[in-house]
């Protein structure tokens, strides 16, 4: 018994030691990554101004004209969808920053492919006060055009209920943006995402008007419209979209609905999910858990 006990003790202490070492290693890696990332951002910002870590125009043109070939990918085999568990979102905005970097979204406060909204019910109020990271007060508080933060404006008031809602393109089944595009430059891919052929878009911005969710934005310098495509270049290689990848709390769930065991299939099966503005008839493909009557 004693031997067994000691063995167990040793094993336990060994586990702890292993765990501790692992933790140390991970911490070091994290610190390194953060330091590395921030120094890269800092350095490029210094050199190139606010669009530092983004694709430059030549790189963009190259990516558009010679899109990478993806072998072994058949878009008929997939049906991508996203889930958002709003109970988990902490409003850290890493998703938004990752998206801006990954997709060369304009580095300012009014062009986004994804964003986060904050809903706050003040004590005794029946309606929510809403703001997003591009609220002027939040920008002023962050003091930067590239690093967005929610300010702490509610610290001295009593709050009944508060939550964050990440938003992005809903890649609708019946997308009104595709309906109104006069040239067919934007289209619904067979595997779900609504894509834009930026070599064919005329920049009329009718789609920007037609999107009920405000998910589309105009890129002045390219003269074409920009929108979330669930990082199509990543998902076709079997990776997660950037926002899903960086989310520290698992708020965003992504996967293939054709695979019954994929995270998204399980998320939809195991939760009561809703979509935004169902009355629009767009049939969104982003499914929300734990939203509220105030969410628009």
């Amino acid at each position: 018994m004693t031997t067994l006990d000691e063995n167990a003790k040793q094993e336990a202490s060994g586990m702890t030691r292993r765990g501790f070492l692992g933790f140390l290693g991970k911490s070091a890696a994290c610190v390194g990554a953060i330091a590395g990332a921030s120094s890269t951002i800092g350095a490029t910002e210094l050199v190139h101004g606010k669009r530092g870590f983004q694709q430059n125009d030549e790189q963009f043109a190259e990516a558009v004209n010679n899109p990478p070939k993806v072998p072994d990918y058949n878009w008929n085999d997939h049906e991508w969808a996203m889930g958002v568990d709003t109970d988990r979102c902490i409003g850290c905005l890493r998703c938004m920053e990752a998206c801006k970097m990954e997709n060369s979204v304009q580095m300012d406060a009014f062009h986004f492919r994804t964003w986060v909204e904050r809903y706050v019910y003040l004590e005794g109020s029946n309606t929510a006060v809403v703001d997003s990271q591009s609220d002027p007060k939040n920008i002023e508080n962050a003091g930067s055009e590239t690093k967005f933060r929610f300010d702490n404006r509610y610290r001295n008031v009593k709050v009944d209920k508060a939550f964050f809602v990440p938003k992005l393109c809903n890649q609708c089944e019946h997308p009104s943006c595709v309906q109104v595009c006069p040239t067919g430059a934007t289209f619904k891919a067979n595997d779900g995402p609504v894509l834009i052929d930026t070599t064919y878009c005329i920049g009329c911005q009718y789609c920007v008007q037609a999107c009920p969710y405000g998910a589309r934005t105009f890129n002045e310098s390219r003269g074409t419209v920009d929108k979330c495509n669930w990082c199509y270049h990543r998902i076709t290689k079997g990776l997660n979209p950037a926002c899903v990848e960086v989310c520290p709390t698992g708020t965003r769930i992504f996967g293939d609905r054709k695979d019954p065991e994929s995270p998204i299939s399980l998320f939809i099966r195991n939760n009561h999910v809703q979509v935004l503005k169902p009355e629009m008839g767009n049939a969104p493909n982003v499914f929300y858990k734990g939203t509220d009557k105030e969410v628009v």
Binding site: V178, V180, P182, C201, I202
Partner: peptide, 28 residues
């Protein structure tokens, strides 16, 4: 005014060459 407004005015005729008929703007 429409031509001045377009982000890519040189592509304006795309809407005429390949009109996407579900768009209210395609027939313009």
């Amino acid at each position: 005014p429409l031509l001045f407004h377009l982000g890519q005015p040189t592509r304006a005729f795309n809407a005429v060459i390949t009109p996407h008929w579900t768009s209210a703007m395609a027939a313009f």
